[in-house]
Simulated scan of single mutants.
Amino acid sequence: MIHFVLLISRQGKVRLTKWYSPYSQKERSKVIRELSGMILNRAPKLCNFVEWRGLKAVYKRYASLYFCLCIDQEDNELEILEIIHHYVEILDRYFGSVCELDLIFNFHKAYYILDELLIAGELQESSKKTVARLIAAQDSLVETAKEQASSISNIIAQATK
């Protein structure tokens, strides 16, 4: 089971967190501080698995971001690396060569995509096409809602003149 997902920049700034196990806010801050310090200080040639507090942290660096997932000891690290890569590929497909700024300014989309991939710490959808279709459907719903809100506000503005 995946306990949490962290996206950390090379400067140690947290760009995305998703918690699947119960942690208090104080514990979350401590976890982020410990893991980011541990991962950021590791040499690039070392393996991408770190044992931590009876769990395993599996991470992978893409450009300026570290994608880190914390799993149980008995879980398969290579499968988690594939999940990380799968998530990055879907982000790349959606944003067109995703970068840190895409995640900063469109964090809600990054969370939505992650929610389409993982539910309760388990892989939900392995098909990139299915996830892309679901994201496109959600985007069209958002656009429809914006258009309706705009037309309603225009009607209200005309009625109050």
Rank of each mutant, 00 (worst) to 15 (best):
M1Y: 04
V5N: 09
V5W: 09
V5Q: 07
R15D: 03
R15T: 01
L16D: 01
L16E: 01
W19P: 06
W19R: 14
K26V: 06
S29C: 11
K30E: 14
V31Q: 11
I32L: 12
R33T: 13
R33K: 13
R33H: 15
E34I: 05
L35W: 05
S36V: 06
M38S: 03
I39Q: 12
V50D: 01
V50E: 01
G54D: 07
L55T: 01
L55E: 04
K56E: 01
V58Q: 01
V58W: 02
Y59N: 03
Y59S: 08
K60F: 12
R61F: 00
A63K: 03
S64N: 12
S64R: 05
L65K: 05
L69Q: 06
D72E: 15
Q73V: 11
E74S: 14
N76V: 04
N76C: 12
N76P: 12
E77W: 10
L81G: 09
E82S: 13
E82C: 11
H85E: 15
H86R: 12
H86E: 05
Y87F: 14
L91Y: 08
D92K: 02
R93A: 11
G96W: 00
C99F: 03
E100P: 03
E100F: 03
D102E: 04
H108A: 13
Y112E: 08
L114V: 07
L114H: 06
D115L: 00
L117N: 06
L118F: 11
L118P: 05
A120P: 00
G121C: 03
S126P: 00
S127K: 00
T130D: 11
A136H: 06
A136N: 02
A136V: 02
A137Y: 09
S140P: 00
V142A: 13
V142Q: 15
E143A: 15
E143S: 15
K146V: 06
Q148I: 15
Q148S: 15
I155L: 15
Q158T: 07
A159K: 11
T160S: 14
K161A: 09
